[in-house]
Design a protein around this nucleic acid. Structure first.
Lengths: 210, 210, 210, 210
DNA sequence: CATGAATGAGTTTTCATTCAT
DNA sequence: TATGAATGAAAACTCATTCAT
């Protein structure tokens, strides 16, 4: 408790914008951009409307800042994927595991996906930047792994423009969780999910002849 | 031409609600529930605000009616899937082809998916009803096909609770089109998509030994 | 009273914007542009804020419309000045009498002058248009009269670019009334004002030699 | 240079209020009382809002202090007029020349006139005090000069309550410059202005007979 | 049925002012 | 003194909804 008191003016000031961004995330996720009241964001932080406007010029600005703020973990994921080693299969599994963890299992990223789908049309620049900074590099990474695997004879030949099929189960699980919000479609355990995912992805549905 | 002219009062009146639902769809898709103005819907029809309220009690009522109105084609899909014949593989391919056509390629269904993701939290009953009426039966259908295929030795053994992975590429393509709205990620031809989809789904990514 | 009831919807609608413009005039005059509350304008009309926005998009729009509305009488003045006859002196007296009546004596125009001085910087386009449509033509008219009078030997030779000195007593009286608002500087009778004005203007202050 | 550096704490503090008054003048002139933000005044000085409130209790207080501060030069003018000598005509010319210089040519006084016209209704006491301290004494001075000139036969007999006509070209020029802000109505040279002004004032517009 | 003027409750935004540091 | 974060009251503006015609 004494420790809490130690929060000085200066520290408080550095904290405020983060607190507001956190609160904004919750409210925007709950009600969407248009449906969210700035006052509710403020209340969640424990300040008044006016304070929000001290830090963010408009509701739009706040929304954009919030999206940027919560996109940071995604960037870290990108860094990790560069340091993998092993066969193409092993590295692909690693990346897909990480992606699953980051997108489907992490509530923040999952809800970010909701906002991108729901509000993307109102913030096209934000979407474009996200595509360029997050989606495209990851897709490129997976593409190059597949190309490498095909070149080495590890993978069968498939048209590389469809590499999003490789990550499809991850995005699909993410979206289904967004829609049914764990009421329906309860989430089974991660290990089983990944095991089946990789089994299907690498071996296919058909029983092998012979 | 004379026939067209005959569309007078009585028919016009029967048409009105449909026109309003169509306009509502466009506006709700464009701006979301909270961001849409009833006046803009009216303007799109060429009437005034008041007229919308002649047919629909509130904006919420209109939204729900619109969702129901545009969910009809989906029901037809369900009927068709019961009449298929052939091997499990063939029937699965047929269902997935139909689903792809209906969900990823059809703009209306695609945008309905956006609304479900974006506004689902505000209209949980709507979502639940949709799950029960559309999603569950289709998943059940696919599940039973897979079970059947596994039983007959046509398919390998996979845990049936992950059957959504089978349709994942379809939902993924749908969502990516929603997000990037054909600016990025241009849609390749359908045949190539389905060919690769089925190839991967049935045979997997790995080169077969031998 | 029955007559008042006769005001139908249609007539009421045609009246509303005028009522709002009248109320806007009073409030803008009283508090200036920034100091005026749209709600006070509405209250003066006996409607609510929202109604004002039915007719005028923004406070700025309303302000501009109000200025334009009340500038109309000024245009009529211009028309009259073209129909004068008599000597240059007589016509000049007629014009100056009209101007005095229209600018210094008419409360509406007088307050319009206040708004032009006070808010001109915020609405430069409005000011420019007024200059071109009202001020410039009147100055031109007076200029041409003076030139004509000088040519005919009726007037002494003076540099024509200073013709605003000829109307100076009118604008000065206007401004003084605006500043002291009849508390100080009580207004003497019009006839005496014009008599002295013309006497000084035509004969000057100095006693004539001889 | 060393001297300039010496302006430290003590002198800085003595300077602050003046700096604030100067900044307040510019902002109040630009946006009017209601339209001016205290923050903009502070920013112009290079301090923060709070600092303004260290020196002035409220925005109103600041406005009034600013008006008083910039009215000082006017007082000096009054002193000078008492020391003139020569014929009534000569002294009148001197006074009018000084007035022209002080009111029409001096930007500060000119803008003060704008504020008096624009904000006078909100600050009636300020206006009254100004009338009593500046306007009335000057008008009185001119009145007495005219009376003296009439008594000595130098001037023709005119009703003395209209002496504001004598200064009208000065106020008129001031107001026109305020309205058109030198965009229209470019200012001709001072000498020509005064020459024509005095010529018209003393001799009138009419060609003298004989 | 259709209108659209009017409402009023609500939302975003602004800003003078305060006060702990 | 100076700061600037925070306030809160108010102002501009919005819009779903109503209702007399």
């Amino acid at each position: 408790m004494a420790a809490e008191k130690k929060i000085t003016r200066a520290e408080q000031k550095a904290l405020r914008p983060i607190q507001i961004l956190d609160a904004a995330f919750e409210e925007f996720v709950r009600c969407g951009f248009a449906g969210t009241r700035v006052e509710d964001i403020a209340e969640r932080v424990g300040v008044t409307k006016g304070t929000v406007y001290v830090y963010f010029e408009t509701k739009e600005t706040l929304f954009e800042a919030m999206i940027n703020h919560f996109s940071v973990p995604f960037q870290e994921l990108l860094a990790i994927t560069d340091e993998l080693s092993g066969s193409a299969t092993e590295r692909l599994k690693s990346i897909l595991s990480l992606l699953y963890e980051q997108i489907a299992e992490d509530r923040t990223t999952r809800e970010l996906v909701r906002l991108v789908i729901a509000e993307g049309q109102r913030f096209p620049d934000l979407i474009d930047r996200h595509h360029d900074e997050f989606i495209a590099p990851i897709i490129a990474k997976i593409d190059s792994l597949i190309v490498e695997g095909m070149a080495s004879g590890e993978f069968r030949q498939i048209p590389v423009e469809f590499s999003d099929m490789v990550v499809a189960p991850i995005l699909t699980r993410t979206v289904l969780r967004l829609i049914f919000d764990d009421r329906r479609d309860p989430i089974p355990n991660k290990e089983a999910f990944l095991r089946t995912y990789f089994d299907l992805l690498f071996n296919g549905l058909l029983a092998k002849p012979g």
